[in-house]
Design a protein around this nucleic acid. Sequence first.
DNA 1: CTGAAAGCGCTTACAG
DNA 2: CTGAAAGCGCTTACAG
Lengths: 350, 350
Amino acid sequence: MATSITRTKRGKGRDIAAPSRPTQKDIALAAGVSQAAVSLVLNKAETPSVPPATRTRILEVAQELGYRPNHPARMLRSARTMTFACVIPDITNPFYPGLVRGLQTVAAPAGYDVLIFDTDGRPEGEVRAVEWLLQGRADGVVATFFHLRASQLAVLSRNGIPLVRLESQHKPDGPLAIDSVYIDNVEAAAEMTRFLIARGHRRIAMIQAEFGPSQRRAQGYGAVMRDAGLSPDFITDSAYSEESGARAMKRLLERKERPTAVFGASDVLALGAMEAARIAGLSIPNDIAIAGFDDIPVAKLLGLTTVRQPEFDLGALAARTLVRRLLPGGLEAPGKSHELKFEIMKRTSA
Amino acid sequence: MATSITRTKRGKGRDIAAPSRPTQKDIALAAGVSQAAVSLVLNKAETPSVPPATRTRILEVAQELGYRPNHPARMLRSARTMTFACVIPDITNPFYPGLVRGLQTVAAPAGYDVLIFDTDGRPEGEVRAVEWLLQGRADGVVATFFHLRASQLAVLSRNGIPLVRLESQHKPDGPLAIDSVYIDNVEAAAEMTRFLIARGHRRIAMIQAEFGPSQRRAQGYGAVMRDAGLSPDFITDSAYSEESGARAMKRLLERKERPTAVFGASDVLALGAMEAARIAGLSIPNDIAIAGFDDIPVAKLLGLTTVRQPEFDLGALAARTLVRRLLPGGLEAPGKSHELKFEIMKRTSA
DNA sequence: CTGAAAGCGCTTACAG
DNA sequence: CTGAAAGCGCTTACAG
């Protein structure tokens, strides 16, 4: 029944075990200056208004008390969170960690943290992400949205939150603070399809996912197939996962006339397909050739022929774009689309 | 020279393109009630002190104005960030995304976001992580520290920030709010080593990294080797990366008397070793057997024999531990060490 | 039971 | 040039 002995200085019934950290007020008190002077000295490299001796004293006291700025207070006062949100379908898809790293590498030196939001690639998840962003949790966003359209994302710009989308093709400039980074997915898939045809394949199937960049990749593949007088052969499974890829491959292998090559709309799909082929006792590429899209780190190890997307560079470019947007006046510039180059990685699987 | 037309209501020279979001004050004004009443109604499921009609009106106005709580303000006032930090060496190591997912899966329903901090597995990065945590950016932390010792982390507890470490062995209970989750790395490595010996291997090398869980794994391996009358054969490279694994493997293959089996202290090291063996024209497991540790998602695909660490479950357990710590009085409980079970995954590589 | 007021820790415009 | 004061948007203890 006795009240706890440990209490913060705010006291009044709030019992918190941890002693509260020193604030600018504490420093001011100890140094005999105003709290505002402390803020000034702590934040500015040069403070012409503060005498050098006072400046030194403030700095010493701060050091002594082990002062650290209270981040939430800063956020509230300055209306900046110094945080970038990274909205992605699934951090366990090996494509995204590289993107996150690229983001962090540019964000950290500029003073920004990176918060990860997984949408699971589902509409509800994407809606929740937007709701969440509207609570002022991040100053800017790098995102992969599969379902939400530009009109549903405009609310972010309207609230002063710049967005960089990871896209699958060029987007026209727009009035909003929505930029994009992309590789030309249509052309990349087209080039891979041409390569497979050049290798002598005629029955080439593509494993697609229902949503996301798969569409553009299918478009490039379809166009080249038709141009070559071949019929596109699409098989769609739900998600970008190995399970989906394996399931689709199994269905392909049950056919009377099997494809000789399978193009996975993403590496994860291709990996699942490889696994299914192995289980079926097929040798790659002798019995069946397999190609992917993304060039995730393990693709090299598995000898997967694939399209390289420079995920680290895409993340870094997205972060640089955000940093620029958040400079004074940056939100007024029209939305730009930035293209990076893809590369066909020819390995042993095809 | 003309001042911009768009200005926030705080005006006074601050020109921000975005219109400022509605606040509780705006709702109060529109509904003719006090701002405090708005806060109450918006946050509590039941408000006996507010007449039902008033409650309804407030809710309607909030809806109408598109009100969203200002997260930074909430953080400051309530002294809670509703954020967990996840401090890891490198998000591109495939072991960690699964951990993060486990964390998120428990954190999100409890209302917590997850912030990622990469240390690169370097002492400076770990020090920066602690500095950063002391700024009040997260309510709790799940972390993998390779270099910092318990005494250097105690400052977190002293500041009321509970920490759950991903450990490689049991830790004794302690007075601080520092918990751990682990699998028995010594025993797991021992069991894998016994398996390799049972397969007839006598010359078994272990590829280690300089820091981190590698130590305990080496301990388990070393003990079993000596018990079997064999000499442990350690080769150390710097980091947990494929490059390190490949480099170490190359050195092993240059020896006059090659090992017949190589045990990578982590899957990433083992993967690098596999790659190097392939480049050298060796067949796995015929010419050389390879085993790993972690069971990252691609291990299955590559047929890598390895020790399964339930990364998702470790993350989820860590998050549950943090949630409990942040309940009233939770910080007072002694630090606990939670063990999860490992599993030897026998595949084709060994 | 009800509502107005204090205050979280900080930044910065402004009065002296 | 210098320092005191306002206020960011919110939660909650407390006075009526």
